[in-house]
């Protein structure tokens, strides 16, 4: 027999303290298989009217609903609930309130990273690897396990500063620009310079043990990190992942 309810735990963060509450999700029909987002919305309606969490599209496209479920980053709108799941804020960014983390330290790393391109012939197609990278929804799941991002100090959250150390997302942005057929050669040097200044060297050292996983399944090691290491340091790395 299917249960009519599902119990989850939600980690709240208020007044500098963090604590867990239990919420019992009432299924809308017996074989409903709700997503984490459905649970959060019902919890806000029924019990915690000031529950703070992000969502936008409900369809795995806007990338802002990422939370940790049992300690691993997941998109709330497309992660099915299992009984006793623990929903907590992303552990890789500073928590502001409940499930809200401050995100803008990441994009701010990239201010001015791309120059305005010269007027080229625009009727040029980009190759498949380029488009594989535009699949990124900026969900920040890839911060988990990133040895570089770990070096950033997360305590400082009352300003709008950029993090000094990079992450798979910021390298993805650089690699996308690098393989854009309209990027001029002079600018490519700048892109590699930028990658180095964000700490690409660390990725080189730890490449073998690097465990980064993209929330939408982009092959980050082969399609982002490896090609960057190759042009930046002339390394030859064997393709391992799929």
């Amino acid at each position: 027999m299917e249960a009519e309810t599902l119990k989850v735990r939600i980690k709240l963060f208020r007044d500098k303290k963090s604590y867990e509450v239990e919420y019992i999700y009432k299924k809308k029909f017996l074989d409903e298989r709700p997503m984490i987002l459905d649970v959060l919305l019902q919890a806000q309606e029924e019990k915690i009217d000031d529950l703070s969490f992000r969502y936008g599209c409900r369809a795995r496209n806007c990338g802002i609903c990422t939370v940790d479920i049992n300690g691993k980053p997941r998109l709330a709108c497309r992660a099915r609930v299992k009984a006793d799941d623990l929903i907590s804020p992303l552990s890789t960014l500073p928590v502001i309130k409940d499930l809200i983390v401050k995100r803008d330290g990441i994009p701010r790393q990239m201010i001015g990273y791309n120059k305005i391109p010269s007027k080229n012939n625009l009727n040029v197609e980009a190759d498949v690897p380029y488009h594989n990278l535009t699949a990124c929804i900026e969900c920040y799941a890839c911060l988990d396990g990133c040895p570089l991002h770990k070096k950033n100090n997360l305590d400082i959250k009352d300003n709008n500063n950029a993090y000094p150390f990079g992450n798979p997302f910021s390298f993805l942005k650089l690699q996308r620009l690098y393989i854009d057929p309209l990027t001029p050669e002079e600018e490519k040097r700048g892109i590699i310079q930028k990658a180095k200044s964000l700490g690409l060297e660390t990725y080189r050292r730890e490449y073998k043990d690097l465990k980064i996983k993209c929330g939408v399944g982009i092959n980050l090691k082969d399609e982002v990190i490896k090609p960057l290491l190759e042009v930046a340091f002339g390394d030859q790395i064997e393709k391992k992942n799929k």
């Binding site: 997941r74 497309r78 594989n132 699949a135 939408v216 092959n219």
Partner: peptide, 16 residues
């Protein structure tokens, strides 16, 4: 040529 991951597809949702 098809791209490997299509936005919104199941392949785009390892978590699911």
């Amino acid at each position: 040529k098809l791209i490997e991951i299509q936005a919104g597809s199941l392949e785009a949702a390892p978590a699911e």
